[in-house]
Amino acid sequence: MLHTVNKSPLERNALESCLKHAVKGSAVLLIEDGVYGAMKGTVKSSMVEDAMKDISFYVIRPDLKARGIDESRVIDGIEIIDYHGFVDLAAKYDKTQSWL
């Protein structure tokens, strides 16, 4: 399953809830304010790094750019994609769950 998260983990618990439900082999795509969850060195970074053992992480490039987050500040191993990549993920996984 593909999970999308559009809230900052520093503001809401959407990402945390998502990671409690996401099973091994699923994917998490960080969009909109959710991209703050992809940043290195925040109080939530270790939560994401731990989850990366079982779950693939992706983040939307234009949403990072809109917030002035340089790609060098993204946690290593999180794949940076564009909207076409988002479409590919939605096609690849049989269901998409949006954590709002």
Binding site: N6, I31, E32, D82, Y83, F86, A91
Partner: peptide, 20 residues
């Protein structure tokens, strides 16, 4: 409001561009 209308538009456009 926030960004959902924009993301939905960008996704739709990308899906159409990819032939879906």
């Amino acid at each position: 409001t926030h960004e959902a209308a924009d993301t939905a538009y960008n996704f739709t456009k990308a899906a159409l561009e990819k032939g879906h």
